[in-house]
Amino acid sequence: MDQTIALTLGVLSSAAVLALTAVGLSLSFGLMRIINLAHGEFLTVGAYSSVVTADHGLSWGVGLAAAAAVGLGMGALTELLLIRRLYRSPELSILATFGLSIVVRQLIQLAYGKDYRTVANPLPGATQVLGVPFPTYQLLLTGFAVAIVVAVLAVLRFTSLGLRVRAVADDAALSETLGVPSTRVNLVVFATSAALAATAGALVAPLTNVQPDMGLDYVFTAFLVVIVAGRRVAPVLVAALGLAAVQNLTTFWTDPLLARLAILVLAFLAVQVRPSAGFRVAT
């Protein structure tokens, strides 16, 4: 029983990290069809924001806010200077964001060096959940993940901004004729996507090593989540949960390498069997 609870909590917190790192990507990829290979570097920038604020003796919350703000600014700048030119050919975004990811990594390295930086855990220790001790900080992350995805969904569903975003995602040309300024909507979406990535970076920083290349380790799994989730935001939670469950349980009962292959197979199957696949050509 205890083991079941522990495994469940483990799956939840693993899913939380996956969802956090993927939700921003699901905006830029799902809604804008931009393959953003620099998503991982936005995450890295967020992690460094929290490192730098901590170095200045500021609290963890300030670091989180700083990460979000830096991510927002960076995302907006990227959209204005680069992504904006690519909507007519989303495939070009691969080259652009690939180049951008290298540039960002190298700039971080020039500014902060290659050393591992460390962010102290703001909530050390464990909390008892149904009699099983579980790291408090990871419980907090799970809450954050759900809250962030729900907030993004709520904005998309219930606000006029969300309506405009969905309209542009469905048919940018048509929305333009209806008076929705798609460039401004895209700016907001991309900046938000980057802000979410940076926030995720600050959130995972206490769990991992902070160094210029850290984003690479997260971006692949984030793409897997988005592949499983399809073009919409809501399934991100489900996809993250599914992938985390497969990954953790395979790891636990067999071994981590099979787990890595298992989630790749899951992603592959998801593209194959999803009934109303988000990626199909409409005919």
Partner: peptide, 20 residues
Amino acid sequence: TAFVPLGTTDFQAVIQKIQQ
């Protein structure tokens, strides 16, 4: 014994495996 791929970021399940 457990081997993890290079670039692993989430050790949750591995840790539980070790604890067991």
